[in-house]
Design a protein around this nucleic acid. Structure first.
Lengths: 210, 210
DNA sequence: GAAAAAAGTTGAACGCATTCATTTTTACAG
DNA sequence: CTGTAAAAATGAATGCGTTCAACTTTTTTC
């Protein structure tokens, strides 16, 4: 399947791959994803345009690589919260969501996020979209898992549908994040304020021990 | 501001405007938005490519015109539901949301919706995005208005935050619709099933008279 | 180690949305 | 009507992601 990982050729390949990704990441950060030219990325990696396309199917695949790193880190941090959530329902959810938001701009800018979201929606049959939604689904599963844990512990009404509410909450935090990515001047604090207000409305309905 | 609406020139202008929009709409429906070439639209409207750009700033503006028609019709139908909602909370919400979904594919295809959503996210500073989110906000306001009406009538717990829950519900129905637009084979019935399951989880928490 | 095969590199060429300098048409003053 | 200004139409040129046929380099074979 995956060829040899040693040998002159393989080494060179790995080096160029990293070189292209780093060049792209830097340029995306500096001038933005859309304004970054393939020529410039290739040039920065000391490679021709044609060679770039031997390493990445297209420009989007570079973005996907960066998105994947970012979301996997978010999932890692999120898992820790789900594993040992705070007692109170609202606090636990705030903690998880804050963790997500706080780790969302390490590798990606708002413009990169917008582009990733847009491409995932527009071309659903694409590897990009599939991978993006796979990551999304993992995040949603984490939110639901937290709700279930809180319910099992007796902090949430037994009759509440944790699966449904988890999805609803995830859709809401996703929508809030989209708004955040769309407003260049909006701060993380403002994002949290906006989401937490709505979160409060939900926890008020489902929490047993406030 | 707006020039004369009579005279040979103005007549011609209005005719070409309509002609281009109709040609575009037809072609979008036939081959899809992305595959539709500006050349083809211009040719179908018996106009040169350059002239097309005298009438529409870009391809997206054509889509915006169609999206606007679609959403305004949806808002019109939705207003009727909000004005005289069914007694039961869950039924009322189902009625409103069904109305939305049932009128969503009159002028637009799923692919056109995807493109519109994607562009609205990706280029927030664009007239397209502003208009799109303005329409979105009107829909959200309608959902909230319905919740408030139901609450005023005593069908929803007085302590529930109708404003917050309206937004949450809207974000959820939006997410469901996005999923629908992304799966070519998904039916309207399947869309409603998926959303109504989650809606049930919420109404179970807020409804007073089941 | 030479020849053949395989893998990788390259930049010119292509498709398509959008722009723009030039030409054509319309409106209108005298 | 005619001359002129304003408005509109036109299609060739531009920019940029992506493709591809020709060329190099590395690996394998004997």
């Amino acid at each position: 399947m995956t060829g040899p990982t040693t040998g002159l050729r393989a080494k060179q390949k790995a080096r160029r791959n990293r070189s292209l990704l780093k060049a792209a990441s830097t340029l995306f950060g500096q001038v933005g994803y859309e304004a970054a030219r393939i020529d410039s990325i290739a040039e920065a990696a000391e490679v021709s345009v044609g060679t770039f396309y031997n390493y990445y199917e297209n420009k989007a695949e570079l973005l996907l690589a960066i998105v994947t790193m970012e979301v996997e880190e978010v999932l890692h941090q999120g898992a820790a919260v789900v594993a040992a959530p705070p007692e109170a329902v609202e606090l636990a959810l705030r903690r998880l969501i804050s963790t997500y938001y706080d780790h969302s701009l390490v590798y990606l800018t708002k413009e990169m996020w917008r582009t990733a979201m847009a491409m995932a929606i527009q071309h659903p049959e694409t590897p990009f979209s599939r991978r993006y939604h796979d990551l999304d689904a993992q995040l949603a599963a984490q939110v639901t898992a937290l709700l279930r844990a809180l319910q099992a512990r007796g902090s949430i009404r037994a009759e509440a549908d944790a699966g449904a509410l988890g999805l609803i909450l995830f859709n809401d935090l996703n929508a809030a994040f989209t708004q955040f990515a769309m407003q260049e001047e909006m701060t993380l604090a403002a994002l949290k304020d906006s989401l937490f207000a709505r979160l409060h409305a939900v926890t008020g309905l489902i929490a047993l021990r406030p």
